[in-house]
Design a binder for these strands. Structure first.
Length: 303
DNA sequence: CGGCTTTGACCCGCGC
DNA sequence: GCGCGGGTCAAAGCCG
């Protein structure tokens, strides 16, 4: 197939040196398109110890009609936050919260069963009649030169495919933890190679294996089970809030488990542990953002 | 030697 | 029905 051909000529990002970090927008989780749903942009810096300098270049707001918004997601396991700036968006496979939750729950059960069976089957006798239930997904865009962002979990790459209409390949990762079916897809935007689109699928069933340099192996995690220790270092609260307000239809509540925070899921990616949950007052206060973005930019972003 | 990446092959869903 | 593209498998190779 052409994939072979493409992958052969695909540049290796791993060769690149991480330098710029910044933000992004929202995109359609279903189609995978960089379909922004509103104007948002921002970032979050994490795992900076490994990534270089924290340069924030705000991306222009992406825009897209809400109708292009996805199926759902949520309940997914949004990442804690990659080691670079990012913006996230939740999508919902169901039209509303309730439906979304149903889908999520059912999907999880089905997936688990299938997954287990799949693992043993050598010659992929995948289900035929059964419609593949999609795990809730959570995606976000990150401007970074490193494609595989650190999020506190260990991932094993299990595949790579050339992406149509894009010179960049898409990589598939699976959480290395046993019994954890979380998957992650990483690809670069063909429009802007600087942007890395990461899609998480599923929910972690374990604690982050990440061991903090400080020695602690327990890091704060967001409601989806993603390590969020890093998030505390840089909190794009404004964006989170803005997103929440602009995309209420994306909301859907994930199962209470693994949910240390009680904030709406849309903000998940930028979520913080309970002790750092953004307050309502931050909605107006630009906080960190003010220090980073010009006022006119902020205006653009949150209007 | 174990864990991870690479990569070609295969399966499946979907659109035409 | 067919072809395409996305997603996954699994053997082989690499690396610490």
């Amino acid at each position: 197939m052409e994939e072979t051909k493409n992958s052969a000529g695909i540049p290796s990002f791993s060769d690149q040196v991480p330098t710029t970090l910044s933000s992004s927008g929202i995109f359609d989780l279903v189609s995978g398109d960089l379909a922004a749903t509103g104007s948002i942009g921002f970032m979050e810096l994490l795992g900076l110890e490994e990534l270089a300098p924290s340069i924030f270049d705000l991306l222009p707001p992406l825009s897209l009609p809400p109708t292009s918004l996805p199926e759902s997601s949520d309940a997914g396991n949004p990442p804690a936050t990659p080691n670079s700036s990012s913006i996230s968006s939740m999508s919902t496979e169901a039209a509303n919260e309730e439906q979304a939750r149903e889908v999520v729950e059912e999907g999880e059960v089905v997936e688990e069963q299938e997954e287990q069976g799949k693992i043993k089957k050598q010659s992929k006798p995948k289900k035929k009649n059964q419609k593949k239930e999609r795990q809730p997904r959570f995606a976000f865009m990150t401007k970074s030169e490193v494609d595989h962002l650190e999020d506190g979990y260990r991932w094993r790459k299990y595949g790579q495919k050339a992406v149509k209409n894009s010179p960049y390949p898409r990589s598939y990762y699976r959480c290395t933890s046993a019994m954890c079916n979380v998957k992650k897809r990483v690809e670069r935007s063909s429009d802007d190679p600087a942007i890395v689109v990461t899609t998480y699928e599923g929910k972690h069933t374990h604690l982050s294996p990440v061991v903090h340099r400080s020695g602690s192996s327990v890091v704060p995690r967001d409601r989806f089970g993603f390590a969020s220790a890093n998030a505390a270092n840089f909190l794009p609260m404004q964006i989170t809030q803005a997103h929440y307000q602009q995309q209420p239809y994306l909301l859907s509540l994930p199962p209470p488990s693994l949910n240390p925070c009680s904030v709406p899921s849309t903000a998940s990616l930028l979520q913080y542990p309970p002790y750092c949950t953004p307050s309502a007052s931050l909605l107006r206060d630009h906080g960190l953002l003010q220090d980073i973005l010009p006022s006119d930019v902020r205006k653009e972003e949150y209007k």
